[in-house]
């Protein structure tokens, strides 16, 4: 397998779990370390299921499945805590990302690691939601005035809040991309077409889930953790009507991103050849070695710069990077 990175082996194992049959001990060690580093070990464990694996691997995968079950339980409990805190705010609460996939029983949620609780509420309800969460024991993570003001002015979410007893973060969004980004998704439509779960919480419609995941992966960040997000997309794409998705993506101005997400999922997990810019994305998404280390620093840097470029107009970007650079503690080390 000359030139195949361990992350490429991981992507192949997720797409075609039976491909792991060919692995020797060293191959397994690299695969498992890459999966851990990409937060995909639980997902891999579910994908491999009851396929035959060496005993040492079976024990590690069983641990990963148990850990994912526990994470899922904790995430759903946290969502319930948020629901209770926000009940009196009288606004819809839409779960996003991992918590949503788990709560809605989607295949993307199987074995998935879940970190923060991400929710979407109407922009008009933000002050009430913030006040209710603060009253119920959540606290600011970033007491820094510049960061706080930056979030409030330029971001699509409140500064992150953490619960003082449970140590869990909640990210309260009012839309799915920063207002400074070049496209503006229709936040009202996201909320209007939500799917109620029957427990006071909701999730996005199947098409909007794909649109959000594609926006998050391709129009926002620097692709850190991107392999997991792309795996989400591969799963979500199997649970949506293609025509409905095309219409929805166009409405949010994210048709290009959704199309690229579909191509990348096929290229990365199913071995469909990638060309042009897609090949560059693939290179970035698979930049991980068998020790769990980040590789291809220049490709990473390129996507990091790009993420800021996408997020902000040039003058704002320059100001932001200048302020961040001046405060970077590692600069003085």
């Amino acid at each position: 397998m000359g030139g195949m990175t361990d992350a490429a082996r991981l992507a192949r194992a997720l797409g075609d779990p039976a491909s792991t049959e060919a692995l020797d001990a060293g191959g397994w060690a690299g695969l498992l370390a890459a999966a851990r580093a990409e937060l995909l070990l639980g997902t891999l464990a579910y994908r491999i299921g009851s396929l035959p694996v060496p005993p040492a691997v079976a024990a590690i995968l069983a641990d990963a499945r148990a850990a994912a079950t526990e994470q899922r339980r904790a995430a759903l409990w946290e969502a319930e805590m948020v629901r209770r805190a926000l009940a009196a705010a009288g606004c819809p609460v839409v779960l996003l990302k991992g918590t949503a996939y788990a709560a809605a029983g989607l295949s993307a949620g199987e074995g998935r690691s879940i970190g923060d609780c991400d929710i979407l509420v109407p922009r008009a309800a933000l002050p009430a939601a913030e006040a209710r969460l603060l009253a119920a024991g959540w606290e600011w993570v970033k007491p820094d005035p510049y960061d706080d003001a930056y979030y409030r002015r330029w971001m699509h979410e409140l500064p992150p809040l953490i619960h003082r007893d449970r140590d869990r973060m909640v990210d309260v969004h009012h839309t799915i991309l920063p207002p400074t980004a070049r496209v503006t998704p229709d936040a009202a439509a996201l909320l209007a077409d939500r799917v109620e779960l029957g427990n006071g919480l909701a999730v996005l419609s199947p098409a909007d889930r794909v649109v959000h995941a594609a926006a998050h992966l391709l129009a926002d960040g620097d692709l850190a953790g991107g392999l997991r997000n792309l795996w989400d997309l591969r799963c979500l794409l199997t649970e949506v009507d293609a025509d409905e998705l095309a219409g929805r993506a166009a409405r949010h101005g994210l048709g290009r991103e959704v199309a690229r997400a579909r191509r990348l999922a096929a290229a990365v997990f199913d071995g469909v050849p990638a060309s042009g810019v897609d090949a560059l994305y693939r290179r970035r998404l698979l930049a991980r070695d068998g020790w769990g280390r980040a590789t291809r620093p220049l490709t990473r840097l390129g996507f990091y710069v790009r993420s800021h470029w996408l997020r902000m107009p040039p003058a704002l970007l320059a100001r932001h990077l200048w302020i961040k650079w001046r405060r970077d503690p590692s600069r003085r080390a």
């Binding site: 060690a29 851990r36 024990a59």
Partner: peptide, 8 residues
């Protein structure tokens, strides 16, 4: 043969 945990 396959490690449980990796130290770097």
């Amino acid at each position: 043969p396959v490690p449980d945990l990796t130290v770097r």
